[in-house]
Simulated scan of single mutants.
Amino acid sequence: MKYNQVTIKDIARELGISPSTVSRALKDHPDISPETKKAVNELAEKLNYQPNIVALSLRQSKTNTIGVIIPEIVHFFFSTVISGIEDVAYSAGYNVIITQSNESLQREKTDIKALFNSRVDGMLISLSRETSSFEHIDSILAKGVPMVFFDRVYDTPNASTIIVDDLSGAKEATQHLIDQGCTRIAHLEGPPNLGITKQRLEGYLEALKENNLPVIPELIVSCPLGTIEEGKLAAEKLLAMAQPPDGIFSTNDPAAMGAMQVIKDSGLKIPKDIAVVGFSNWFFSSLMDPPLTSVDQPGFEMGQEAAKLLIRQIEVKSKENIDPTPETKVLKTRLVVRNSSLKKGKK
């Protein structure tokens, strides 16, 4: 889809006034009536007009810089993604500006505006868990900025995405628990607005259905922050049931770690009494007691592929002056089996 930068002339033509009147209205000149100022500013906002003419003129030149917005730098998965991005970007002669939304929609809005004003050639974005509206993203897309979403993506036809097959990964994790003899498998569910949460829940449900196991709503516990503390609270809730689960598949590793701590503190054995599987394969997963089985996401590869795709789109736009066709690439997951899920006598 081709976007053109809105100019003062466009606003003037739409309102039937002169460009100079529009310019003065935007500058709040006292000679312009309040009614005209109101009309001009409302239309400028509607059309995503960028009043900084100097910045606009500078955007015509390539800066060889890409911007990255991630939810959390301390998250092991995202740190590996950053390494992959930098590996490709620096080799291609691009600098990288990294920002952190800290899982905040407002911070995400601030970051995307800051990157645009820094004149990056394109952006790589993974959404915050608070993001459920996308006007701030659509505004930048409308200005023709190449954009690639990774992991936590915005479902739009106007931008490319790099994702992992969360559904298949979750299904394999749940099937593994079933193969170990688990019949009452709980699921610790992640942030409700994220696509990865929905895909992991769907994979869990598909595995249950394909093995003729009942879907028990009480065994699906929400962990919207995905923290260790939420994992503890979820496990306490599950263990208080008349029939506790014999297996847990968690939407991420921190929640799984919290659940493991409560299970052990209650005197139960892992995996003999309750087998546990996480998702993301954090570095600390292998250091747990017992080591945590987890679905490995290829973070470094995701970063590489996202950077390659974005740079390719930037080059096409720069050399041919056309908007490249958005693409979607799906990467495979891998179940790393450790002792938290291997019941005695099971392979």
Rank of each mutant, 00 (worst) to 15 (best):
L309Y: 14
Y3K: 11
S91N: 15
Q175C: 05
T65A: 13
E35V: 07
L309N: 11
T227R: 04
I137A: 11
A142H: 15
A44C: 13
L127M: 14
L208W: 07
L127D: 08
V221W: 00
E14W: 01
A186R: 04
E45I: 07
P71S: 11
Y154V: 06
N158E: 09
I11Y: 10
P157Y: 12
R24C: 01
N339A: 13
I97R: 10
S341D: 01
L233R: 14
S266W: 12
I73M: 13
R24K: 10
I196V: 15
F249G: 12
N252E: 04
P217T: 00
D155E: 12
A89W: 15
A242K: 12
I11H: 10
I220E: 00
T63E: 03
L177W: 08
S20G: 05
Q313E: 13
V276L: 04
G299S: 01
Q261N: 09
E14Q: 14
D246C: 08
P298I: 11
I125N: 13
P19M: 03
N193Q: 14
A55V: 03
I163H: 07
Q106M: 13
D28P: 07
S222C: 02
I322V: 15
P191D: 11
D138G: 13
G303L: 06
S23R: 02
I311F: 15
V276Q: 01
M1V: 09
L188N: 08
I311D: 08
K198G: 09
L213E: 00
P271R: 01
H136P: 05
E202Q: 14
L219R: 05
D87Y: 15
L213N: 11
L26P: 02
K319A: 13
I311A: 14
T333P: 02
K46T: 03
L201G: 05
N95I: 07
K198A: 09
E103M: 06
T328A: 09
S286E: 08
E202I: 00
D265Q: 09
V145F: 07
F78Y: 14
A142Y: 13
F300M: 05
I69G: 03
P244W: 02
Y154N: 08
F78M: 10
D246L: 10
R312I: 00
A89T: 12
Q313P: 01
N117V: 04
V262K: 03
N41T: 12
I97Y: 10
S128R: 12
E206I: 15
N211F: 06
S118D: 02
G122P: 02
S126K: 11
V336T: 05
A39L: 14
I53C: 05
D253T: 09
D28S: 08
K113G: 01
V295F: 08
D121T: 01
K9A: 15
K209I: 06
E327M: 11
